[in-house]
Design a binder for these strands. Structure first.
Lengths: 153, 153
DNA sequence: ACAATAGTGTTATAGTATAACATTGCAGTT
DNA sequence: AACTGCAATGTTATACTATAACACTATTGT
């Protein structure tokens, strides 16, 4: 949990540096994501918030806080799963241009990998040749993790 | 429209070869997808069905027919968009191992590209090294098409 | 103290998806 | 033809995902 605390500190510093306030709800929701270590939905976050902080939070607020945290590059939204997950690069300095998410379809454990910039340029080129432009450099791969795979059948 | 008719014929043959019945609803919904040339949601399909065939179809049926068409490899579901699109490889014989979908976030025009098998194996290996197994070889890229891009701002 | 703005809450509603059960219709048998 | 079994479809209800519109509160700068 100290690691989570450290992350929150980093997040607070980053937000202050950007001149945006990181309020109590934002910190709390961010903490839940840090401690969960899995992708969770907005409604799961709202439930967990009430359990942990003995206070209800409307899902609208959860969605809004998630938008905020995404803008601050602290959180990602997985579009294939409709769930949120903490960015795994918060504590490293350099900007990551593109991420590949390996998402377990059973337990929603997620591994975030960085895309090698050569491969990324190659892909962008291929997309351009097909008459499109890449809008968000986020790649989600529907996977199964080893432990869930071992349990199957 | 003749191209669509030809596709329906192929689909009917394929289903018969598998010993599964392709009913009127299935043919009709498949035809709508063929003619739309874009990704469409289950509810849009239900609406379009009523317009085209002067008969309502419940969305449950749409979802079930889409499942059926996916099993027959005639249709793909785009998880990032919650929409369906006809498979672009129906009329070619060979199985396509993996597809990359370029999806316009504005108009939902979609381009389906085949993934080069060398790249695919490379990716699978990388995923395995990360402790996951690829579950569905379908890659969705959030893009914008040139004509929508031209319209922006 | 005041205005301006950002954050949060409330209520309502739209959109996505499936469970549970009922009914229909067709295929193969007797 | 009547019977049986199974797949397809319909009905109803419900859960989950997401946002619009508007009200209220808190903080900041003047």
């Amino acid at each position: 949990m100290n690691a989570a605390k450290a992350m929150v500190d980093i997040a607070e510093k980053e937000c202050k540096a950007h001149g945006v306030p990181i309020t109590e709800k934002r910190v709390n929701l961010f903490s839940i994501l840090l401690q969960t270590q899995k992708a969770v939905s907005a409604y799961e976050l709202a439930d967990e918030y009430e359990r942990m902080f003995h206070e209800p939070v409307p899902v609208v607020t959860v969605y809004r806080v998630m938008e905020f945290l995404q803008r601050e590059h602290l959180v990602h939204k997985l579009e294939t799963a409709n769930k949120f997950i903490v960015c795994s690069h918060i504590d490293c300095k350099k900007k990551h241009s593109a991420s590949q998410f390996l998402i377990c379809r059973e337990c929603f454990t997620v591994k975030e990998l960085s895309v090698n910039s050569g491969k990324y340029e190659e892909l962008k080129l291929m997309i351009q040749q097909a008459g499109f432009l890449l809008d968000s450099p986020q790649f989600e791969l529907n996977c199964i993790c080893q432990s869930c795979h071992a349990k199957e059948d």
